[in-house]
Nucleic acid binder design. Sequence first.
DNA 1: GCCCTTATCGTGAATGACTCAAAACAAGGG
DNA 2: CCCTTGTTTTGAGTCATTCACGATAAGGGC
Lengths: 139, 139
Amino acid sequence: MTSTPETQLREAGLRVTAGRVVILEALDRLPHADAESLFRAAQEQLPGTSIQSVHNVLASLTESGLLRRIEPAGSPARYERRIGDNHHHIVCTNCGAIGDVDCVHGDAPCLTPSNTNGFTVSTAEITFWGLCAECSALA
Amino acid sequence: MTSTPETQLREAGLRVTAGRVVILEALDRLPHADAESLFRAAQEQLPGTSIQSVHNVLASLTESGLLRRIEPAGSPARYERRIGDNHHHIVCTNCGAIGDVDCVHGDAPCLTPSNTNGFTVSTAEITFWGLCAECSALA
DNA sequence: GCCCTTATCGTGAATGACTCAAAACAAGGG
DNA sequence: CCCTTGTTTTGAGTCATTCACGATAAGGGC
C-alpha cells in the first residue's frame, strides 16, 4: 500500500510541489527510469520544467529516502520508488532494461562476505547481468 | 604467478608498448586505481603521456581481458589486474577505498536469483558497502 | 484568505569523466 | 631495414550531472 505522493512527501518533511508529485507518479509507470526519461514524462504535465529541476527533485527525494538511486555500470543513474525491501536488480547487457529480483535465498547469505579486509560491512548490493526476455529472443 | 606485463600483452595479441607496460605495473602497486591515478603514476615514467592515452590503454586492456573494470556508484571507473577468479568488492562509503572480497559462500548461491523476470542471467556482481578500517577508526 | 519566510524551481554556466577524430608515430612481421 | 598497421598524441566534443543564483511558490502564522 504505497501512500499517495502527497502524503509521502509530507511525511518526509518535504513541501508538496507539482514537480515532485509528477515525478513520483511517473516512476509508478516507469520503474527504473533515468533522469532523462522522467524529464520527458514530466514535460507532458509540466511543460515549463527543466532537466535540472528533475535532477533537483530526484536528489531531494533520494536524500529523503523516498527514492532509491541505482547506478548500473555504463548507464545513467536510474531511480525507483522503494518499497523498503532490499531487493536487487538484473540488467540487460544488450538493451539496458532493468528488472527487480527479490532477495536471493532468504537474503542472509549474501550479506556475509567471507573476509572483509578490515571493513565494517553495512549493506550488500547484487547486480545480475544477462539478457532480458526480448533480447534473448532476438539473439 | 602473474606473468610479466610483456608476456601477458603478447599472449593477448596486443603490441607491447611502454604505456601498456607502465599501466600494468602501476596497477600492481595501485590495485583498484582509477584512470586519473594511473595517469599520474604513468607520468613519472612517461612524462609525455596524456590522460587520453591512459584511457586508450585501459580500454584495450579491458577489452582483451587483461584488466577488469569496476564502476562503483558515485566513483569513476576503477581497474584491476584480474586473476580470473570472480571475486567481489567492498567499497568504503566514506573515502571510496576498495577491498577485494573472495567469493561469498562457495560462490554458487548468489548466482541464482529467485525470480528472473524472464531474464537469462549470465553473471552476478556483488558490491558490499561499509567503512574501511581507517574510516571506522575515525568514526 | 493574505503575508512573509524560506524551500524549491528555473535559467544559465561549469564540471568530471570519458569518447571521438585525425594526424604523427612506433612495434614487429617480412 | 622497411613497410604495414596498430598505438599514441593532440584537440575537440559529448553526456550526465552539479553549482550558482535570481525568480517563484508552499504553507505556517496572523
